[in-house]
Design a binder for these strands. Sequence first.
DNA 1: ATGCATTTGGTACGGCGGTACCATGAAGAG
DNA 2: CTCTTCATGGTACCGCCGTACCAAATGCAT
Lengths: 224, 224
Amino acid sequence: MPKRVDHEERRAQIAEALVRVAGRRGLHAVGMRDVAAEAGVSLRLVQYYFQTKENLLFYGLQHLTERFTARVGARLAAAGPDPGPRATIEALLLASLPTDEEGRTFHLLYSSYSILSVTDEALAAQPFIDNPNAAEDAVTGLIARAQEAGAADRGVDARTEAISLLAMTATMGTSILVGQREPESAIGVLRHHLDRIFTGQERDGGGGADEESSGPRGGGAGAR
Amino acid sequence: MPKRVDHEERRAQIAEALVRVAGRRGLHAVGMRDVAAEAGVSLRLVQYYFQTKENLLFYGLQHLTERFTARVGARLAAAGPDPGPRATIEALLLASLPTDEEGRTFHLLYSSYSILSVTDEALAAQPFIDNPNAAEDAVTGLIARAQEAGAADRGVDARTEAISLLAMTATMGTSILVGQREPESAIGVLRHHLDRIFTGQERDGGGGADEESSGPRGGGAGAR
DNA sequence: ATGCATTTGGTACGGCGGTACCATGAAGAG
DNA sequence: CTCTTCATGGTACCGCCGTACCAAATGCAT
């Protein structure tokens, strides 16, 4: 036989190509031939490893999730060892914003898959629907822990705030994507709410990050 | 000539069909033949009134906007004559949630168009991008007015809260669409934030708002 | 009535996209 | 060495979709 190949690795490579081309031209516009060309393989190969386009899309979503998880992990690691609840939440939220090319792709494709799943029950049945729930639970737990430690306002409802933070992040991400809002504006809004939820007492030593209290609408009245 | 027909009316009828079928099968899956069948006309007719599919989609978006505006207006009217800022905002937000079939269609299609506009510059150039900005300005103004009247906490930044409310509404709408969240949950979160922003009192609060109330903050004066 | 512009219908064409089929090269097993 | 099995390539088929073309019915002006 020819050089025995690791199928999983091959699939990942092709899925990567799918993510790239879909991030550029949009998920709706991507075809199997595009993916094959982007991956530098023949159309037949894509068929060989994923029998159908549906399978390819499923795998692409799963791959996307893994990559995003890694992205959040990297941001967390960059926030130092054992970051507090606030830093953890902030890392998660900021990693979800399309502030760089990778984030742009993530947000665009996640949103695309979400919208598709509304009218495509095969996609809706995919277990990626649990992901938002997991994030919500995680943030809720982090806020609750901070409350118990006295680092967060005990007067707020942890789950409500978790839902709110994640929801705001998602929509503002789309706003950034369509060019309606600047990333700094979105970050400002999120930090504002984090400041509201978390009382000042917490680590987050001299990172030297600039802080602005509330500066929505980054550029101001500009263009258009 | 054959019975002189009102082109605008015809276009609206066909656009209505587009909205219906797209609301069912998804915007990505709709074809000109589907629209024609749904409208009960021939494919040629759709071509006649909209030369290209692109035109049809543009018109469909515009039509959608008009219908949504009417929906909000109806909700406002149902809220009684001269509703206060909070009732106005609440009507706008709740009208945006997919709590009924009409709302479901609105939210699904708006989201679809938004995502499409990220990778389709022809759509992005369409003036529907101004709509979110208009809503943001409107809500900001309403909050600021309430603040001046003493009906809203002067300690919050009007624009930041407006952005937050609208952003939360949009994402939670999608969550409802995919079956992840119940409408009551979304409404509860929104009401929670409205309660936070709007004090129970109206103008000339005797006891005044408790907690920090920094200096007077003019209407929507953004820092920065 | 004649004619002409408007409205509508049916259908064909070109292209593209997903899937299926056939073929071939490359190793490991015997 | 041969045979089998995996991996890969090329290509053809079928269907759908947007668009274009041909043609007919219709009603107002002359």
